[in-house]
Amino acid sequence: MHLEVRRRRWRLTLGLMAALLLGISVAATGLGTVPVPVGEVLRAIGDAVVSGVNRQDTNSVIVVMLRLPRIALGSLVGASLALAGATLQGLFRNPMADPYIVGISSGASLGATIAMALALRFSLLGLGAVPVFAFVGALGSLAVVYNIAREGPRLPVVPLLLSGVAVGAFLQAIVSFIMLMSDEKLRSIFLWLMGGLAGSTWTDVRAVLPYFLLGSGVLLWQANNLNVILLGDEQALYLGVEVDQVKRWALAAASLITAAAVSVSGLIGFVGLVVPHMVRLIVGPDHRVLLPASALGGAIILVLADTVARTALAPTEIPVGIITAITGGPFFIYLLRRYRRARSI
């Protein structure tokens, strides 16, 4: 199939995925302890857009103040994780890479754990201590990993992965120690580490959105260069790509959106690892379509998973990270077997 034809298919696929995300979001907004019919959902959204939220109207409050921000945040977090995962898998030419591979998760965990253990109470731009500490921790651990791995201006892949693992293990040990020392906070720390979207607000959405827009903008701008880097670092140099610059941009962008997502949702696993693989099966390896399609796919998956998380055992919430891990794990094994079969042909 030639490129012109494929481009048309790319646009079609992205359009369909966007429509699917929209449909799922509307349907999911109606689901919950108090079911709201689709017509009501649309009316409430329309009213809110035109004249603001009517606090007397229960459906309107449920839809606009409780469920929509959670679905919007779920979309953003899912999109961020899958986008970052797709980027890092390509950048490292390693199918096992996920958004957490360079130590972001453990840095965020440590930040969040400290904030919770010390019961810090402050607010920055409407965000509480936990997300702020998680964000700072994530970027801090990234900086450490990056500086261990880099050799002058060069950023070799293997040292980056290894130092990510090493720093991660180190930080994780500190997290475990703090958890042991603070039994009354254990549950809340544990819940955060599992990842969840309960209690999301529009403030969270507003906090994450700029990072997502900035990061995904940078990544889409570098999509073509990321394609070339898939051929190998040296090969990319010969094609005129400033490989180390591209790597720094992509790593920074992917880490930033991951850190922002993690800070408001905790550690949601498997979305960033599995979704890019699923999407690659459909659209192929070209980053110009893989990145936006992964973002849409991540959003769809996380909104679906979160809907299960809050409705399956209602009124009890299951942390969404458990849902993604329970479904993502077996699915990843399925992909693995599929890949292996394909290669043995």
Partner: peptide
């Protein structure tokens, strides 16, 4: 060496 591991 020209690694070609992705389905381009």
């Amino acid at each position: 060496e020209n690694p070609m591991t992705f389905d381009f």
